[in-house]
Design a protein around this nucleic acid. Sequence first.
DNA 1: CCCGCATACATCGAATGTCGATGGGAGACA
DNA 2: TGTCTCCCATCGACATTCGATGTATGCGGG
Lengths: 114, 114
Amino acid sequence: MTKTPIDLLQGTLDLLVLKTLSWGPAHGYSIAQWIEQLTGQVLQVGEGSLYPALHRLEERGWVEGEWRLSENNRRAKFYRLTSLGRSRLRTEAVTWERFVDAMAKVLRASEQPA
Amino acid sequence: MTKTPIDLLQGTLDLLVLKTLSWGPAHGYSIAQWIEQLTGQVLQVGEGSLYPALHRLEERGWVEGEWRLSENNRRAKFYRLTSLGRSRLRTEAVTWERFVDAMAKVLRASEQPA
DNA sequence: CCCGCATACATCGAATGTCGATGGGAGACA
DNA sequence: TGTCTCCCATCGACATTCGATGTATGCGGG
């Protein structure tokens, strides 16, 4: 039995995809699989979310796509991180950390502030 | 000098508000202030986000509003957590933790999975 | 040889929730 | 009286995710 999945929070998919691509080029289908596998199916990446995300990352110059053949001999679009994308990944990761910290400050507080 | 604020991720405001109200009843304006103060202005709660959130929480039975006078002698709607809201807060907090954990698994991974 | 399955990309409409702008009203204080 | 802060509220724009749906092709079993 797998744990119940959680809906993605808006804005986190880009970070997930950029991070995944930092390990090397990959096509959409495998990106989704890696994320689901790594999180024990807690995060699931629907195709209706993933492909728009990939296109938007490409449009912004953070990734570049190239048609190749997949490991299974199927036509697939491999994406790789650009240097712009690498820097974007860094800032998005930092922002995420800051956000998590800020949330924690509220969630761990036991009393209302003065 | 204050740190640059971060936009809220969609869905996190409800949790923030529920948690804030778990310290006791409060009106909208003060809820926003507490959150901003606790996070050192990292999270800022715009009124265009807060009031819709409050209304939606009330509609779902998680909070109840009552008109009273504020500490400054002004007309204000004080919200308090219902028992339904308290249980909702618990599940939302757990979900948030699970989400953060899942994100961390991807962000801390150094290599692609097998 | 054909059928079904997994792979792989893509698009669409619906739903949701945040943001910035805007507007009002009423107490406090000079 | 005028202005400040408090306090509520609504609006349209915007971005993103989701589920459904559609297409195509390689692979392996019967």
